[in-house]
């Protein structure tokens, strides 16, 4: 039996005022296994990103509980949660979110600095090579293409060897060819390093690359299916 990395029970989130409430996520139950590639799909406004944020502890749920490696997120202090995020979670955003004043290498090393840890240069070298960033390591984000920026963001997200990588529409700003390239890189990392990935997308073709697809409709998790079932 495979280990459970992330799980949640009855997860719910409501936005808006009393008169104008929006149920973004409703009663979601999940168990994500170590080393698997999960894709959340759904229409715009179906609650995909909100669910990702709730699972990552970046937003507090109105109901339900989230566990990462058996640790209940709601029980953690702000500092402990930040530490957990630094050491056990990786994030890739749709619009890369690289720091413009830092080079590619410095951006990748940022989690080490935030964690006040010595930089693991051997791992850094492997990452740069795996994501074809070796030649670009001294460049600034403004000097990179969209695909290169997103690869840098992926390298930054896994620089601390996290338990899980959260990717929120990582190909949303990329053209088809670059999207496929990025996906190849993600799959390679997933297979080679047994990386657990939870990726949000509205593109079914991308979702098919994962091991399992989670279909979200109006904040409710409708189906969990094997990618090849779809």
């Amino acid at each position: 039996m495979t280990d459970i990395v992330l799980s949640c029970k009855d997860l719910g989130k409501i936005y808006g005022t009393k008169q104008n409430q929006v149920q973004a996520v409703t009663g979601v139950n999940l168990k994500l296994q170590k080393g698997k590639f999960y894709c959340i799909i759904g229409k715009s406004g179906s609650g995909k990103t909100t669910l990702l944020h709730l699972l990552a502890g970046m937003e507090k749920p109105d109901s339900g509980t989230v566990w990462l490696n058996g640790v209940e997120l709601s029980q953690l202090t702000e500092v402990s949660l930040a530490r957990l995020r630094r050491r056990h979670m990786g994030f890739v955003f749709q619009d890369y979110q690289l720091l413009p004043e830092l080079t590619v290498e410095e951006n990748i090393c940022l989690p080490f600095l935030l964690d006040k840890k010595e930089i693991d240069f051997d791992w850094l070298k492997i990452l740069l090579e795996a994501l074809s960033l070796t030649e670009l390591q001294n460049r600034y984000p403004t000097e990179l293409s969209g695909g290169e920026q997103q690869r840098t963001a992926v390298a930054r997200a896994i620089s601390q060897r996290p338990s899980i990588l959260f990717a929120d529409e990582p190909t949303g700003n990329l053209d088809k060819k670059t999207s496929e390239e990025l996906l190849d890189f993600l799959l390679k990392l997933h297979r080679k390093y047994d990386l657990t990935i939870l990726l949000v997308t509205h593109d079914l073709d991308i979702a098919r690359c994962g091991d399992e697809i989670l279909l979200l409709e109006d904040g409710c998790l409708k189906t969990v299916m094997k990618a090849d079932e779809k």
Binding site: R85, P111, L114
Partner: peptide, 16 residues
């Protein structure tokens, strides 16, 4: 603001 958000998402504490 977005840079601050990124840092927090990466695990920066309020103190840092």
């Amino acid at each position: 603001t977005r840079e601050i958000g990124t840092r927090k998402a990466l695990g920066a504490t309020n103190g840092s």
